[in-house]
């Protein structure tokens, strides 16, 4: 059997409020080599018709990290502990985003995490936790849904990479 705590399938975290911050979006955008100034220059973003700098495509992962930390401050168990992940064997398998609306600096957002379920692959050598994270805005609704597979490469399958 695997290492994940499979009894947590169906778990949903309490919504955590996170404000998308202009400086944080600009810093992230510059770090990933973003060249479109709508992601780091508020004047250029406004010229392009946006209310503020706009988060780049993979920014939901940053909001999720921020929500995890904020949740911990409020006593919420981090998702990685909820599922019983063993960092020695943990791999990031897949990451996927569905976009429903843009995320701008200044947006006050609600971030919710879910454990969708667990599965096995390669004859039990790999066990997979399926996670989901939703970014919501009070007026504009769901802006992004992220889905992620975290994988335990189990010790019986050999050494970690």
């Amino acid at each position: 059997m695997g290492l994940f705590d499979r009894s947590r399938a169906g778990y949903e975290s309490k919504p955590i409020e996170i404000t998308a911050e202009r400086g944080a979006i600009a810093f992230f955008s510059e770090t990933i080599g973003e060249t479109n100034p709508i992601h780091f220059d508020v004047d250029e973003a406004r010229k392009a018709g946006h209310p503020d700098v706009i988060a780049p495509a993979t920014y939901p992962v940053v909001l999720e990290m921020a929500a995890a930390k904020e949740g911990q401050r409020k006593g919420q168990t981090p998702m990685i502990e909820v599922i019983g992940a063993d960092m020695r064997y943990l791999l990031h398998g897949t990451e996927a985003y569905d976009y429903h609306g843009a995320i701008f600096a200044g947006d006050v957002l609600q971030v919710v995490g879910r454990v969708t379920g667990f599965s096995d692959a390669k004859g039990g050598q790999l066990e997979i936790a399926h996670l989901e994270m939703e970014v919501r805005h009070a007026k504009r609704g769901t802006l992004a849904v992220a889905r992620r597979d975290l994988i335990h490469r189990l010790p019986a399958a050999g050494a970690q990479s």
Partner: peptide, 26 residues
């Protein structure tokens, strides 16, 4: 960090307002 680059390939070309989904397998 590499996933972010895949995002750039898409949005540099189309503009982020056209992006409906992005996924990757490591």
């Amino acid at each position: 960090l590499s996933m972010a680059q895949l995002g750039r390939v898409a949005t540099d070309w189309s503009g982020i307002d056209r992006l409906r989904g992005l996924s990757g397998r490591f």
